[in-house]
Design a protein around this nucleic acid. Structure first.
Length: 459
RNA sequence: UCCCCAGUAGCUCAGUUGGCAGAGCAAUUGGCUGUUAACCAAUGGGUCCGCGGUUCAAGUCCGUGCUGGGGAGCCA
């Protein structure tokens, strides 16, 4: 008999009679002559209820089943008299695949997120994390769908890189040098290393993606990135996934249009395709989720320049821990104020002073600011960072010299400005931060299957 | 790196002028009406994070270390 997943079973309008399901027991309730078992196979949030009568051959074994035990069940799919459920299975046969003993840490009741992080290998079996990672999968698909439909090409950029996307954070080194040799020599000689020079895990695929945008037009890269920042917050991880579209013949405004459309499309997709999982987050994680989704879908994101933002902050009459001055980078408290108290919705901040942004961002006509953009979202912080790139060779070179960058390392990058360069733009969006926004989950570690953070690399 | 909070049964938590530690869930056993963390009863379960100190006596007070969580900086 062919196995049917529970999500498909629950969609049936009429019973096919005999069915086969396999999954994990969520709970068992015994009476004198029979038992109820809730089985979940991960395909959806809901369980299927199985009734086992004491005339089953292995009923004494069935009575030893505990939460977590894996089973295979054949039986008749019947309309259920129980409330809140359409179908149940009257079991003909229950095979115990593997008993979960007393040491199985998950119970029927809820557990704290802190505890579940210590058993990250089992937490997908809970309702909350089952929902979180199903949704993660669906959103990854939705990103590909969005860009596919817009004619973008998916580009897989290197994870091991010799290039430094300047200003994008600390890098993890990649080396095959023997640690013992390093210790003996007291230093690392990169000429003898695998790549013949220093190499690292990538902090961004952007520079590579620009090369392809200037050939294929519109591309996106979507994959893991790595930052060796000692950031101990609920918003940071050392390994995280980033979406980075790059668009030829595109200015900053069109860049923002794409970003805003992307976010709205993804939110709509989640609500349309994952209503049960989204309802769980709304009911049990974040009561304000419906209202937040409404704002994301039905309001235009605010767009203000850095200079305007400084003005707003200075006139706010709030006392901040960090002084608000033109030319300085905004701090968390400033960004929070703008997104959460002033605009109360996502806000694009543009046109930052050139000295606080990297070399590749396009210089504005005023000579003081660059065509940069950050999208600040309430509770999340910076969800998206991007810019229009500098397409003028002389300006780019001048900027790199000002910043004291080694030009010879970027020869291939500068080549792209010599031969048919065009205005182009792009941005990076943290996938996990997007998921936090979508679910209301407040810690990035809980939207990553096996998170990597400072001091922590279990599983 | 800095600031704050915490660590007691497998899990979630009580334990206050210091006096040899409890509850719920889980587990085991028994019972039971189609239940939804079923319900009822019984039983077992503890280096009170580690190491020092104060005291006749420390889960409780003091010091130090470790681990976890929240915040700041760094930053997608």
């Amino acid at each position: 008999m062919k196995r049917t997943k529970i999500n498909l079973l629950l969609k049936l309008e009429t019973t096919p009679g005999e069915v086969l399901v396999k999954g994990w027991v969520r709970t068992k309730r015994d009476s004198k002559k029979f038992s109820f078992m809730e089985i979940n196979d991960g395909s959806c949030l809901k369980n299927i209820q199985v009734i086992a009568n004491d005339d089953l051959e292995n009923y004494p074994d069935i009575q030893t089943i505990t939460t977590g035990t894996s089973v295979s069940v054949t039986g008749k799919l019947s309309a259920s008299p129980g409330k809140g459920q359409k179908w149940e299975i009257q079991a003909d046969q229950i095979e115990i695949i593997n008993i979960a003993p007393e040491s199985y840490p998950l119970q029927k009741k809820r557990h704290t997120d802190e505890f579940l992080r210590t058993i990250a290998h089992l937490r997908p079996r809970t309702n909350k994390y089952g929902a979180a990672f199903r949704l993660r999968s669906e959103m990854a698909f939705a990103i590909h769908k969005f860009y596919r439909e817009k004619g973008f090409r998916y580009l897989t950029t290197p994870l091991i890189t010799g290039s430094d996307c300047e200003g994008a954070g600390e890098m993890f080194r990649v080396t095959s040098l023997d640690p013992k040799m390093i210790e003996q020599q007291g230093k690392m000689d990169f000429k003898t290393d695998f790549f013949g020079r220093e190499s690292s895990l990538t902090v961004s695929g952007q520079l590579s993606a620009e090369m392809f945008a200037l050939a294929l037009g519109d591309v996106y890269t979507f994959g893991p990135t790595f930052r060796a920042e000692n950031s101990n917050t609920s918003r940071h991880a050392a390994e995280f996934w980033m979406l980075e579209p790059e668009m030829a013949f595109c200015d900053l405004k069109q860049n923002m249009d794409n970003a805003e459309e992307l976010v709205k499309t993804l939110v709509r997709h989640a609500m349309d395709e994952c209503p049960e999982d989204m309802a769980l987050f709304s009911n049990f994680v974040d009561k304000s989720l419906p209202k937040r989704m409404d704002i994301l879908l039905n309001t235009e994101f605010a767009r203000v320049s850095y200079t305007q933002a400084i003005d707003i902050l200075k006139h706010s009459k709030k006392t901040f821990d960090f002084k608000v001055d033109y030319g300085t980078d905004l701090q968390s408290e400033h960004e929070r104020y703008l997104a959460e108290q002033y605009f109360k919705k996502p806000v694009f901040l543009t046109d930052y002073p050139k000295q606080i942004k990297p070399f590749y961002m396009r210089m504005n006509e005023d000579g003081k600011t660059v065509a940069a953009v950050d999208l600040l979202v309430p509770r999340i912080g910076e969800l998206i960072g991007g810019s229009q790139r500098e397409e003028r060779l002389e300006v780019l070179e001048k900027r790199m010299k000002e910043m004291g960058l080694p030009m010879e390392n970027y020869w291939w990058y500068l080549d792209s400005r010599k031969f048919g360069s065009v205005p182009h733009s792009g941005f990076g969006m943290g996938f996990e931060r997007f998921l936090m926004m979508l679910t209301g989950i407040s810690n990035i570690r809980d939207v990553i299957p096996f998170p990597r953070t400072p001091g922590s690399i279990d599983f």
